[in-house]
């Protein structure tokens, strides 16, 4: 039996979700953002909630997320996605409202919005792409940058004496009464991608549940292979060896 005999519609077991449209994503080859976009589209499609989902996109590499997943979107000013999402959720309480933000967006300029939106306990889902760098603007140091990690603005490595320490904002979020589900995942292997998908699904289901309030927060420990100046494969290896020590994978809160 040749590949040609097998490649038939009735034998299909995996393909891109159709909600992720045919536009070419602008992300660098191998970027984690693409995998997470695909998972979000899969989950929304499987839950059948395309018509009642509103995404809030960030400033950062994911600024154009609205070009790729065919749902309603609102673009927020840098760091303000959780505030915008809170407003949308309060006006449209029946809808799934989620934010999608990088670490520069969520854990630097938007730290106040992140903390207060979670602490208010609205039923939001928040997807946090932590690649420990400002990818979009050319790879500058972020609050999440690891000690010793080289970036455009700390070319000799982040020096804690000068720049302080990496910010595990997800741990802070987990402390808050308003947080219901807080988890840290990754998308570097097929097994990890499956777990990350289950986490996104849980966050989306929580955010649609009228009985129980609270924010659901999913950090995806990610790579920015361009900013890190590594191949996609090497970037994944570097992430496992270094990022996972500072940002361990697993659930931080689940109530």
């Amino acid at each position: 039996m040749t590949a040609q005999d097998i490649i038939k519609p009735e034998n299909l077991v995996y393909s891109k979700p159709s909600l992720l449209n045919d536009n070419t994503m602008h992300y660098c080859p191998g970027c984690s953002h693409g995998v997470v976009h695909k998972l979000i589209a899969e989950v929304i499609e499987e839950m059948g909630i395309m018509d009642k989902t509103v995404g809030v996109s960030p400033v950062g590499c994911a600024v154009f997320a609205y070009n790729y997943i065919d749902i309603d979107w609102q673009e927020a000013a840098h760091g303000r996605a959780p505030a915008i999402a809170t407003a949308i959720k309060r006006l449209l309480p029946e809808n799934l409202v989620f934010t999608y933000q990088g670490d520069g967006d969520l854990a630097a300029i938007g730290t106040a919005e992140t903390i207060h939106a979670v602490n208010r306990g609205d039923n939001l889902a928040m997807i946090f792409i932590n690649n420990a760098i400002y990818g979009m603007t050319g790879g500058q140091m972020a609050p999440t940058t690891l000690e010793g990690m080289k970036t455009a603005t700390c070319p000799y490595g982040r020096d804690p004496q000068l720049n302080g320490y990496h910010l595990p904002i997800t741990n802070l979020v987990a402390q808050l009464e308003g947080a219901r589900y807080v988890t840290r995942q990754s998308v570097h292997t097929a097994a990890a991608v499956r777990k990350a998908k289950a986490a996104i699904r849980k966050a989306f289901e929580n955010a649609l549940c009228p009985e129980k309030k609270g924010a659901s927060f999913v950090e995806i420990v990610s790579t920015c292979n361009s900013g890190w100046k590594l191949s996609p494969e090497k970037a994944n290896q570097w992430m496992v060896e270094n990022m996972f020590k500072a940002y361990p994978i697993g659930d931080l809160k689940n109530i």
């Binding site: 490649i7 034998n11 992720l20 994503m25 693409g34 995998v35």
Partner: peptide
Amino acid sequence: MANEDACIGCASCGIVCPDGCISVYKVKI
């Protein structure tokens, strides 16, 4: 596909692809 015969249709390739380029097919013989 460089080594067609070895494919077991596990979909790992498709699942990790950041750009959703891969469709996977499987048959039971």
